[in-house]
Each structure stands twice: as C-alpha cells, then as structure tokens.
Amino acid sequence: MLSTLKERTGEVLLPGDEFSFETDDSISLTGPVRPEKVVCGPGLRRSGDRLLVCKSGVLRHKQPHMFWMDSQQRRYVPAKGETIIGIVTVKSGDVFKVDFGGSEQASLSYLAFEGSTKRNRPNVQVGDLVFSQFLIANKDMEPELVCVDSSGRANGMGVFGGGGLVFTVSLGLVRRLLTPHSEVLADLQQLFPCELVVGMNGRLWVKSSSVQQTLVISNLLQSCDAMTAQQRRQLFRRVAQGAL
C-alpha cells in the first residue's frame, strides 16, 4: 500500500477512493520482510484493512510515511494543541465562553491566564479577542481553551487586540502562513512593518502603523487566498510601488 500511496501523491482524490493492501503472490522467504507502517492524517480514514479518502483534495506525503489530504476548507474543526483567535461571548462566574467559529463555544477558565489567581482575576471583557490554545478538543466533549502553556507561561497567548483589525480567511491560507519559511509571510514582510496574529481557525489579526496600511494588508491577505504564487508576487509588487 505504501507504494500505491506514494505513486498517487500529488493527485487529486475524491471521497470514496480507497487504497487496499495488495496481496503479494509470493513473499520472499529469504529476504527480510518488514511490516509497512502508514500514518494517516486528516482526510484519510482506516476502515478495516482499507484506507478510505473522506475529503476531496490533493494527497500529500511527508517522509518517512505520513500521508494526508490537503483540502480547501472554510469551516474550522477544533484539534488539540492548535492556537486560535477567539471572541469572548459570555462571562459567567469562573468561566468564559469563547466563540471560535466551531460547532460549540469553548470554555476558558479565568485561572488559565499567566499570573492569575483567585484574587487576581484577569481583565477580560465580553467582546475581547483572546489568543489561546486547545487543551481539550475532541468530538465528544466540550472544547476547552487555555492561555498558558504547559509550564504556566503565557508565551504570546492571552487577551489582545487594541487598534487592529480581525478578519476571516480560508484554512488553507492560514496553514500556508504558518509553515516555516512561508513565502506569503516573506513577501508580506517586505511591504510594511506590521503585527500579525494568525489563528488556526481561519481568523487573522493585523495592526500596522496607520489605518490605511492595516486595511491594505487585510485586503491583500483576503485576496491572495485564491492566487498563485506568481500572481501574489505581482500584486504585492504593485502595492509596494505605491498603487495605494
């Protein structure tokens, strides 16, 4: 199966396509026969002894044996450890309810901030933006967010947002922004200095030195969702030359 998967890497597959183990007619008795191991990522599911594709997209491969489906999607499904931008909707007692664009609102305890104790409560109002990560995120339980990492430090998380603009983009663009040595980010850095917070739920926050520049950057990012690298570079170049 590993060989068929590798052959079809980079192909566009649809739900319903499957990979099954080929039965070898002859297994060599002398040479070593190692069991194949395949790690399935999002979009691939195991069903019995077959591997089923359940989302449409391009099959990607990472050495040594990780495969997943790269699809264009807008709706976010929470996963543990991912950092997102959420909006606080309810402040009730000890727990805040945060909307992150999923099927339910996540809960964020007031103690999950750096340096907060029962006496020293964090300053969070309804409507604030929080950058936090998922502590619990599976399909059966209510998602739970925290603004500290495992050692108790904030590490960039927490309430933020004055003066910037938050907007939504597709999940694919967010993933492209977060890859190491991201091209989009590199192109953006050459434009204007700005602060950028990337939430994996498709929300981005931008702040630049003036309102105009912030608007330009947010429009650029929203439009380069659907552009190839070349078109994007052309567009950025035009903007840099001052077609503001």
Binding site: L14, P15, G16, K55, G57, S71, R74
Partner: peptide, 11 residues
C-alpha cells in the same frame, strides 16, 4: 458537500 470539505464515505 464536496466544496465544504465535509467528510464523506462515498459520493
């Protein structure tokens, strides 16, 4: 459904 990326077992 394909465009939304919802998981399906077949089309």
């Amino acid at each position: 459904l394909i465009d939304a990326g919802l998981p399906m077992s077949c089309l």
